[in-house]
Amino acid sequence: MHKNELDRLAIGLMVLFCTIWGLQQVAIKLASAGISPVWQAGLRSIGATVIVLLWSWLRGVRLFERDGTLLPGLLAGLLFAIEFALIFLGLEHTTASRGVIFLYTAPFFVALGAVWLLPQEPMRRSQWAGMALAFAGILVLFGEHLFTSADGAWIGDLMIVLAAMFWAATTLTVKVTCLARSSVEKTLLYQLGVSAVVLPVLSVALGEPGVFAATKVVWASLLFQTAIVAGVSYLGWFWLVRHYPATRLSTFSFLTPVMGVLAGGFILDEALSRTVFVALALVGTGIGVANWPARRR
């Protein structure tokens, strides 16, 4: 049953999911102490693929029937794999707090791509204003480390901005192809399944050592990413999209950078400069303004 308004269940789940997604960058940093970044991303995709397959089997979702989604599905999976390779590699150079802010500029790039690919979804003035604020936040945060000597944080920042672009490309691929008519489980499985193959191969090609310090914290962080983030929260998000207005749900997305910055500060003891909070305010406000429902006449 589809609802036109968000109830307490939807609001509570969105706050929970935004917290989980904000913690994801922290979990990646913790697991990187014992697992190479791209190999870690591959293990995450492999585990999440198993979870989605099991979920689909229990619910009787048909995944392997011919429906014309193979080629766009493979493309979406490849874009997804590149996105997460860049995220995991980028977090080797920058902090989780900065990374989560840069990553959640993806709606800005979706909006830019939609101008050409989705002409049936025209942008309102408020959306352009919101995107301008978000872009200002990128410039403020990126400039903090760009000209600092002996500081390679800008490399990680740039990687995660590129990851946001690939995330946007994945979203647009799903929206403009027949994947938009496919089940959410099948669409998610394309992304997880392809990345489960591509990422381990890329890790070997990069000469990564793989698992080099298997501690309880490392394995717990990987388990959190696999089961909670890529498994439970993604499936829960798709369930919400099916039952509630997507535009109203998207207004909560600005909570994720907030949760990520706070988690990076409290859990990883990362320095939270004034610039981080200024950028966070700009990006969060911008995404919130861009996703605010249009006023009814």
Rank of each mutant, 00 (worst) to 15 (best):
E144G: 15
L141C: 08
G137L: 10
W116T: 10
A111F: 06
I101F: 05
S126W: 03
T94Q: 07
V140M: 04
P107M: 12
S126P: 00
L112D: 05
T105N: 06
P107V: 12
L91H: 06
P119D: 04
R125Y: 02
Q120D: 15
L117K: 08
A129R: 00
F109S: 06
T148D: 09
T95V: 02
V140P: 06
W116C: 08
P119G: 03
G99W: 10
F109V: 07
V110D: 09
E144M: 10
E144V: 13
H145C: 09
E144R: 11
A129P: 00
F108R: 03
A134P: 02
V110R: 10
R124N: 04
S149A: 15
V115F: 00
M123K: 14
H93C: 04
F109I: 12
A114D: 11
A111E: 05
Q127D: 03
D151K: 04
S126E: 09
D151T: 08
A106Y: 09
Q127E: 12
V110E: 06
R125N: 07
A150N: 15
A129K: 00
P119C: 05
L103Y: 09
W128Y: 13
A136H: 02
V110W: 05
E121S: 13
V100T: 11
G113A: 13
R98G: 00
R124H: 11
R98Q: 08
M131K: 01
V115K: 01
L103W: 07
G90I: 09
R98H: 11
L91M: 11
V140A: 06
G113H: 12
L139M: 13
E144N: 14
M123G: 04
D151Q: 01
G99Y: 11
P107H: 12
A111W: 03
I138C: 15
L117F: 15
H93D: 06
F109C: 10
A114W: 08
D151Y: 04
A134W: 02
I138N: 12
L146D: 04
A134G: 14
